[in-house]
Design a protein around this nucleic acid. Structure first.
Lengths: 203, 203
DNA sequence: CGCATAGTTGACTACGCTCAACCCTGGTGG
DNA sequence: CCACCAGGGTTGAGCGTAGTCAACTATGCG
């Protein structure tokens, strides 16, 4: 949980931050609202959605504990998407003006923030790369490979598989079939909410 | 062309930058190389590719003049993808150490850089949102709407349509059919490399 | 003029989506 | 303790649409 620990923050910023608890289903901010706060998730999970043309709602991403939220708010005056708590969650809010001035004053903080944002770009790049894999079972396998990340070959999900499916750009049915196929072919084995990958080669 | 103009840069950074010319097809850097330089495109266009499992090569994105390249190099020791010049191009290279120390010293520069990176995140988000639109002609139409951006309803392409197709995640054939359908249905009209959109409503 | 490449169009295939039924689990209340 | 219910997950059948392969045209360049 790679947060900026509270006591390492500059005084004036520390005084400005706002802690907030949300229950499942509650909205942190809404698309179109004036953007005055930057967030970091302490516990829980958020779903970022966006209503596009012809009132279809798309899920842009899920943000887990430790991730930053609404980095665009730093340089924009409105939120361009809506954040909904998927489960009970706790977040830290940084008023944009306070944060910006702190970033000017404390190069360490600025560099840390930059690194966080860059990492977020990479996460998007990975997701886009996955979308280029058309066949379901291959995309799913590669997704799992990214998740295990050289640690153990086991990945455990703490969210419903249907959310994994939307994250992958599939319907729950397709994901289910893909996992079944991967298991049948011996690439993975499942037990409960955990999946172990047998061939975790390739980056 | 929103570059950091050379004479507004701090002295030591200005001395460190490296200008480089590449001809079409030349590689700026390669996946796996040690990452020591951050780039900004002055003129031209680059294709970022990545070889993934089973030697399939995917195109992550195209980067145009004015865009930044390899922002991940700032906080990583190797490049995670390969950049190839699509056309003859000119780039500015900033050695990572020089740039990082300049960012610490000059808050304006740091804030500017952060804004650039955040904008890049938003670009990825848009692209991911587009990928959630399954039917080709709808995705293409929405893509065009993002491009026109409230200016005139005309967008002119300076790159082959097959590259637009890969950017959209389609084959050239599918893009061609989608454009033909949109024109047939009266949503757009084409003439040469320009497309005018008649119904540019919706965000 | 000839060649290479991009774009278009057609026919067929393949794979993910949709809709539907069914199973299984966990939680609730009688 | 069991009956019931709701939701997630699985499986099946059929459909729709993008991919694939191929042929053809158009354009630009040597």
């Amino acid at each position: 949980m790679n947060l900026i620990t509270l006591d390492s923050l500059p005084q004036n910023l520390r005084r400005a931050i706002v802690l907030q608890e949300l229950i499942a289903g509650q909205r942190l901010f809404q698309q179109g609202d004036t953007a005055s706060t930057f967030f970091m998730i302490e516990t829980g999970r958020f779903r970022m959605i966006r209503n596009t043309i012809e009132d279809t709602i798309v899920t842009l991403q899920f943000a887990e504990a430790g991730e930053i939220l609404a980095e665009a708010a730093l340089f924009s005056d409105i939120y361009y998407c809506t954040a909904i708590a998927e489960v009970d969650s706790r977040i830290i809010g940084y008023p944009v003006e306070s944060l910006l001035s702190a970033l000017r004053e404390y190069p360490d903080l600025a560099e840390y923030m930059m690194a966080r944002i860059v990492r977020k770009i990479q996460a998007f790049q990975v997701r886009l790369e996955l979308r280029n894999i058309r066949t379901a079972h291959k995309r799913v396998l590669q997704y799992l490979r990214y998740l295990v990340e050289a640690s153990e070959n086991v990945v455990t999900f703490n969210q419903p598989m249907k959310d994994i499916a939307t994250d992958l750009g599939f319907t729950p049915e397709t994901l289910s079939r893909a996992l079944a196929r991967l298991e049948r072919e011996g690439a993975i084995t499942r037990s409960g909410r955990s999946i172990t990958i047998h061939d975790s080669s390739a980056a």
